[in-house]
C-alpha cells in the first residue's frame, strides 16, 4: 500500500502498460496492473512476478480508468496486456465526454 499522487506516472511490472494518475484518493492504496502492484517509471519489476489470468483483459491507449467509488482515475499512456486494478477491484473504462471542440 502506498500514497499515490496526481500527476505521477507508473508502469506495469508485468506488461507494457503505463499510466498517469489523474485523480487519487488520499489514503494508501494498491494500484495494480495484471494483478501485480505497479512500479515507478524507473523502477525494476520484482523477480518472479507474472501476469494474472484474472487481470489480463488489457489496457487501452488514451482511456481513463476508474473504480466504482470514482475516487481514482488513471490515464493509460501506453497500452498493454494487463488489466488495471485498485485494491483488488478491476478498474473500468470511464465513458468519454462529449465536449464540442473549442480550439
Amino acid at each position: 500500500m502506498t500514497e499515490i499522487k496526481v500527476g505521477a506516472r507508473l508502469r506495469s511490472a508485468v506488461c507494457s502498460t503505463e499510466v498517469m494518475v489523474v485523480a487519487a484518493p488520499d489514503r494508501p492504496v494498491e494500484l495494480t496492473c495484471g494483478g501485480v502492484p505497479m512500479i515507478d517509471m524507473d523502477g525494476t519489476p520484482p523477480a518472479g512476478v507474472e501476469l494474472s489470468g484474472e487481470a489480463a483483459a488489457g489496457s487501452l491507449m488514451g482511456k481513463r480508468y476508474t473504480n466504482d467509488a470514482a475516487d481514482i482515475e488513471v490515464l493509460c499512456t501506453k497500452p498493454g496486456d494487463g488489466s488495471l486494478g485498485l485494491d483488488g477491484e478491476i478498474l473500468e473504462v470511464k465513458e468519454a465526454k462529449t465536449l464540442p471542440s473549442s480550439d
Partner: peptide, 23 residues
Amino acid sequence: HRHLTSYVLGSVEYGAAAEEDAA
C-alpha cells in the same frame, strides 16, 4: 505544464479525430 495538460485532459478525448479530420 500542469495547467495546459489539465486543460487538454479535461476538454479533449485522446484520438477523438477521424483520419480525415483537419483543423
